[in-house]
């Protein structure tokens, strides 16, 4: 299936530093945001060029991939001695477009809520397009240049973009960086925080870190009172009806790459720990219960 872009045998030893696509086969994008983002690459459908690009990406031939606001730089190694230098430029939206997007996102709490909890709101594709922010770029909204001299998106740039799509699959917010603004900057515009507030927060943090507490010389204060300690409240204790709610509330771990789903892996630990904690609270070594 490699066709004419297959590599000569003697060069099969691939550079150790190469980036290897996580996916051995199948699509580079599993999530909708990555699939949509890379749709401009799919326009040509299956083609020998596409296959060659995939081979480069999966063969560890993309040596580096650096994402900067608005731009991506990559090095791709093919049969040529020196790696190809690739630069991909994304078109930057105007200030007005950003303002329009901010206003549109503010109109529905769901956008801010999702972005803040590390999720890509699905409606954002339409909203950003309407505002003129090419979060999901069209083919003519990016310009790729490569020292191979081929016009448009050459096979090297294509390979780099495939790996970029894979990254976006794990980190959707990268698509914001590509159009020139990090999601953090966007959220700041969305939620706005004044300098005064920042100063106040800093002061509060400083106050919280109390430096030292000298021991009192008064013997009554020093030794404390047994009765007072015994009466200290510890609050209600019960096993929560929903296991691992605290972790669940934080959502899935960003760009998880474990064998098991993150929250699924944690849930039994939370569940078992609950019983162990209850016994510690009751002051028992272990639960001798077990029905008679």
């Amino acid at each position: 299936m490699y066709g004419r872009y297959d590599f000569p045998r003697r060069k099969k030893a691939r550079p150790k530093t190469g980036l290897v696509a996580k996916t051995k086969k199948g699509p580079f994008a599993e999530q909708w945001w990555a699939a949509h983002w890379m749709s401009f690459l799919e326009e040509g459908g299956e083609s020998p060029a596409r296959a060659a690009a995939e081979a480069l990406a999966r063969g560890g031939r993309v040596l580096s991939l650096d994402v900067e606001p608005g731009r991506v730089k990559a090095q791709v190694q093919d049969e040529r001695e020196t790696p190809h230098q690739i630069s991909i430029q994304f078109s930057k939206p105007t200030a007005t477009a950003w303002r329009k997007l901010t206003t549109a996102l503010r109109a529905r709490a769901v956008f801010g809520a999702k972005l803040l909890t590390g999720e890509m709101p699905s409606e954002i594709e339409v909203v950003s397009r309407e505002a003129g922010v090419p979060l999901f770029p069209l083919r003519d909204e990016l310009k790729a240049s490569c020292d191979c001299g081929a016009p448009g998106i050459c096979v090297h740039a294509h390979a780099a973009l495939l790996l970029l799509a894979e990254r976006i699959d794990r980190d959707p917010f990268l698509s914001f960086t590509l159009v020139g603004s990090t999601v953090q900057e966007l959220l700041e515009r969305l939620c706005g925080k004044s300098e005064e507030e920042e100063a106040a927060a800093e002061a509060a943090a400083e106050a919280a870190a109390a430096p030292t507490a000298p021991l009192p010389a008064d013997e009554y204060a020093y030794w404390g009172q047994v009765r007072k300690i015994r009466e200290l409240p510890l609050g209600q204790v019960r096993k929560p009806p929903v296991a691992a709610a605290v972790a669940r509330g934080l959502g899935n771990f960003p760009f998880w790459r474990g064998k098991e789903l993150f929250l699924d892996a944690l849930t039994p630990v939370y569940d078992t720990a609950s019983s162990i904690g209850l016994n510690a609270f009751l002051g028992e070594e272990e639960d001798e219960a077990g029905d008679e």
Binding site: G224, R230, V237, P240, V246, A247, A273, G277
Partner: peptide
């Protein structure tokens, strides 16, 4: 001593936190 009872109480509080599942990796 009240200091001993204090740590005893603190252990129970740890137990309560774990029982309530108020912990994170």
């Amino acid at each position: 001593g009240a200091d001993f009872l204090f740590w005893s109480k603190a252990l129970r509080f740890s137990g309560a936190l774990v029982a309530r599942q108020h912990f994170l990796p």
